[in-house]
């Protein structure tokens, strides 16, 4: 099976996020980026499928700061080929535009399955998976937590609330939005990533022109929280004393 895995970078949410002066995007000058955690799950799912049934994996990403490192990491983990789509890609690229550019590039790449993360932290105009599938005319399933190859189709599990799961047969080619692979994403040591950088090259493809999402972003703000926790400060003893006091007041200490 020939699998394409789409990866993207998102701002590291552990870091402080600052809104740009015009109020319409994040201030991207000092942002730290990390690979979208769900894309990492998608790659892991692809690697498991390849290990079981053979085939190839191609990692595809739109150009972004430090994306080369991430694409080489995909290669170091076991992807066969890595493709970078380059072009006018400054700032936040909408999901609609990203999906258009990906669809244009992927049309020319033969594939059975396209896997991507179920969502990312910045897709305010929707998730890339279903957009891309629709532009390509392929079926799509999101929130997928298991994929099994079975001839010219895959059997997938889609997760609902409360631990209920749906099972579906999906004809190929298809696009799947991966929530979680059956096992945690593997780790590629930096030495192996460096070695891969010397051995392999990224394939570059020019991005097609793409329309936006049809939305005007009026402003971005930090949420005004109605309430905030009362913060307990001090050393461990003070903190523990206070927590026990709060629980005791509410009769929560009787086991």
């Amino acid at each position: 099976m020939n699998i394409i895995v789409i990866v993207k970078h998102v701002p590291d949410l552990v870091e402080e996020l600052e809104i740009a002066e015009d109020g319409k995007d994040l201030n991207r000058d000092f942002l730290k980026f990390v690979v979208n955690e769900f894309d990492d799950q998608a790659l892991e799912q692809a690697l498991l499928l390849k290990e079981k049934g053979g085939g190839t994996i191609t990692a595809v990403a739109l150009d972004a700061p430090e994306i080369d490192q991430t694409l080489f990491t995909c290669l170091a983990k076991g992807a066969d080929k890595a493709v970078k789509i380059v072009g006018d890609l400054e700032g936040r690229v909408t999901s609609h535009a990203a999906a258009h550019m990906l669809a244009d590039a992927l049309k020319a790449m033969s594939h059975d399955l396209i896997l991507t993360g179920v969502q990312s932290a910045e897709d305010l105009d929707g998730q890339v998976g279903p957009l891309l599938a629709t532009y390509l005319g392929e079926p799509h399933v999101s929130v997928v937590t298991g994929v099994e190859a079975r001839g010219q189709m895959v059997v997938v599990r889609q997760e609902y609330a409360g631990g209920v799961t749906g099972e579906f047969e999906v004809d190929l080619p298809a696009v799947l939005g991966i929530q979680a692979a059956p096992q945690p994403p593997r780790y590629a040591p930096i030495s192996r990533v460096r070695a891969t950088m010397k051995e392999k090259k990224l394939v570059e493809i020019q991005a097609a022109a793409a329309d936006g999402a049809g939305l005007n972003v009026r402003q971005m703000v930090r949420p005004q929280v109605a309430s905030h926790a009362e913060m307990i400060e001090g050393n461990t003893d003070t903190v523990v004393e206070r927590i026990v006091g709060i629980m005791a007041e509410r009769g929560l200490m009787n086991g």
């Binding site: 609609h96 929707g126 279903p130 999101s142 999402a213 939305l215």
Partner: peptide
């Protein structure tokens, strides 16, 4: 914005050309 909504909302936006406000 449930599992089902994640399938349908963006797909319908792409198919109809109507913009989507997600989340």
């Amino acid at each position: 914005n449930t599992s089902i909504g994640m399938d349908l909302a963006a797909g319908a936006s792409a198919a109809t050309g109507i913009p989507l406000i997600a989340y």
